[in-house]
Write a protein that binds this DNA or RNA. Structure first.
Lengths: 206, 206
DNA sequence: AATTTACGATACTACAAAGTTTCGAAAATA
DNA sequence: TATTTTCGAAACTTTGTAGTATCGTAAATT
């Protein structure tokens, strides 16, 4: 799975060093193409052309075309929204859903749908999607929700289920619906999930 | 979009009539392949070979390879589970989710993931999936839920939202998770959604 | 300056799959 | 029986793309 060849850290290698600019242009080109095309539709030639690079350079540093796209996702996803922490459960849920809907209705949405589609038939893409996106995101969300356990959130809430209830409808709508979200979608979904997990001992304080 | 050429209904055509057996063998072959491979991985040759038919016969009756798979889905989906009607909202939800989970953990699951994946980059597949599967299913579910409105279900429940909350987590798990469902997944999800839509005026009677 | 490695451009090879055509045989009609 | 249309088999053409190889040049080290 590793793609980029690591140079020795200690001393500079001989000859001309790798052009970091072309590396980032290639990844950026891959990401831009993912905003418009599916995995299979994106050709190595198209990446090279858009990046203003040579196809030879792509295959010099990546084992194949898909590895470029995989690394492009990894880079794009690196700095993503942390789970909110307002102290209030409802507000945390609402903000998180709103942020994610914003992501899923923007240009970058197709990057995710393209990846999920590709993952259905390519185990390597699936594994990367899990490791690079899904697992870290779910871990962050779990930690964010865990703070409320026993307080606003009921003690025995099943977070795996809660996360599915939160994110499932969003992915579902983007993948099988037409990707439209009403203005108050995040609010409405928040209320449903909230009622399902709220601590009954504190019902009056909400 | 229409695929099969309709013969004149009035009088039999001249020459040898179309072999209905090969037609159904081709569709069945397409469906079986969809249980294992993605849209793009399925070749016309593979369909022909598995069907014991000729590739020429495929192209005699379908405009292209994808049309075969699209029609295969349509046929396979024709006789599907109706929305349950036990009279009890909780029971209806539970049965419906259980049935759907059973479908999504069986062989046919990959037919759906393959279609949803293909729909991400093929508008025609997307349109067919909407018309043949999603819309009729949602309409049936809506009608099933509508019976409870104002009774066990609150008067102003937004069914679009409710359906997303019900089906979203399931599709989400199959498409981006690993397709595993715990034994009590349907029960747990039912309770969450139920709390979100239940009629507060009848809270005590549930 | 000599050497080494990377770069972009481009030609090239290899291959897989879509879709077509041909052929001899089979199944229907008139 | 003559005609029409389908069938399966298989050869064939066409096209798209992955990946490689070549070449002249650029940027680094020694």
């Amino acid at each position: 799975m590793s793609t980029t060849i690591k140079p020795e850290d200690t001393h500079r290698a001989r000859g001309r060093p790798r052009c970091e600019d072309s590396r980032s242009r290639i990844l950026e080109a891959g990401l831009e193409l993912l905003e418009e095309f599916s995995f299979a539709e994106i050709t190595a030639d198209a990446i090279a052309e858009r990046a203003g690079a040579s196809k030879a350079t792509i295959y010099r540093w990546w084992p194949n075309k898909d590895a470029v796209l995989v690394e492009a996702l990894r880079e794009a996803v690196a700095q993503e929204l942390p789970f909110p922490d307002t102290g209030d459960l409802r507000e945390d849920l609402r903000l998180q859903l709103q942020n994610f809907i914003k992501l899923l209705t923007g240009r970058r949405a197709r990057v995710f749908t393209a990846f999920i589609a590709a993952a259905q038939s390519d185990p390597e893409v699936a594994e990367t999607f899990q490791r690079v996106w899904r697992e870290p995101r779910r871990a962050a969300a779990k930690a964010g929700l865990e703070r409320h356990r026993g307080k606003q959130m009921r003690q025995n809430a099943d977070l795996e289920m809660v996360l599915d209830a939160l994110y499932g409808p969003l992915y579902y709508r983007v993948l099988t619906g037409r990707g439209k979200f009403s203005e108050d979608y995040a609010d409405a979904l928040t209320e449903i999930v909230l009622k399902g997990i709220v601590n009954p001992h504190q019902g009056r304080t909400l």
